[in-house]
């Protein structure tokens, strides 16, 4: 376990270095993009190693405790963001706002107990991995959209405008955020379907309106509301980006809030 924690600390230090470099790059109008991607990638490999070691030691995936859920989500969110960072060069300075969001999760992770929890038999099904995998892609897509939305919002100020002048104009960022949210809807829907199949086998019901299911449905509705509004009306990028942030808040509460205040058996294995 000591090695696992050392690797995790190393990964987090590398993530923080990469994120800090992104912030410095934006503030000083530099683009050390290869160094940022290198640091994130190295950190992600360390993180993969620590998760693998824990998986082997406990004989189950990182899905049970808050420590495991935060760790696996930081891992998947970094992965999704790295792919976006690598493929869409024009938005790379957005790392300066995305990484600080992940820093908050990393801080929370470091304060969580790395203890173990029982892995019930009802979790030993391929549908758990499918459900979780779709959920992670959904949250990753929303995170990229949130990064773009924060850039749009920060450009309301002169300082923000100066820092993010190298990024495409607001309308284009808004369009890209919309596309990531559409991708998020597809994967959120898949997550709900896979979760219902799993719940049917695990607890003998596919949907029971338990707090987590209700919040997941509300998140889906808010996401659908945003996409309908965005495709039906001409919404200004600044207003659209606020809606993206609202979806993120709902999703964040669903993933990291509700499972830990609910007493239902559905404990949010995400």
């Amino acid at each position: 376990m000591e090695l696992e924690l050392k690797l995790l600390w190393t990964a987090i230090v590398l993530y923080v270095l990469g994120g800090s470099l992104a912030v410095i790059g934006v503030v000083f109008r530099k683009r050390p993009e290869r160094s940022i991607l290198g640091l994130l990638l190295l950190g992600w490999f360390m993180h993969t190693a620590t998760l693998t070691l824990r998986w082997i030691r406990l004989d189950h995936g990182p899905f049970m405790t808050m420590f495991e859920i935060l760790s696996s989500n930081v891992w998947s969110l970094v992965l999704v963001f790295m792919i976006a960072y690598w493929r869409i060069k024009a938005i790379r300075p957005a790392a300066a706002v995305v990484m600080p969001i992940l820093f908050v999760m990393m801080g929370w992770l470091m304060l969580s107990s790395p203890g173990e929890a029982h892995f019930p038999q009802s979790f030993r099904t391929p549908w758990l991995f499918i459900h979780i995998g779709f959920g992670k892609v959904f949250l990753g897509a929303v995170l990229v959209a949130v990064g773009l939305s924060i850039v749009i919002q920060s450009r309301r100020t002169l300082r923000g405008l100066a820092c993010f002048q190298s990024l495409p104009e607001d309308a284009r960022l808004d369009e890209l955020a919309y596309r990531f949210m559409a991708l998020g809807l597809v994967f959120n829907s898949l997550m709900l379907i896979a979760g219902a199949i799993w719940a049917q086998d695990a607890w003998g019901r596919y949907w029971a309106w338990d707090p987590l299911e209700t919040w997941a449905f509300l998140t889906w509705l808010v996401l659908v509301f945003y996409l309908h509004l965005r495709s039906t009306y001409r919404i200004a990028p600044r207003s659209g980006s606020l809606l993206v942030l609202a979806v993120f808040v709902a999703a964040f509460l669903t993933f990291f809030g509700v499972p830990f205040i609910s007493t239902a058996p559905h404990k949010g294995a995400v």
């Binding site: 009802s122 030993r124 099904t125 695990a202």
Partner: peptide, 8 residues
């Protein structure tokens, strides 16, 4: 048949 937690 042998049924189980995830196999009704």
């Amino acid at each position: 048949e042998q049924i189980a937690d995830n196999r009704p």
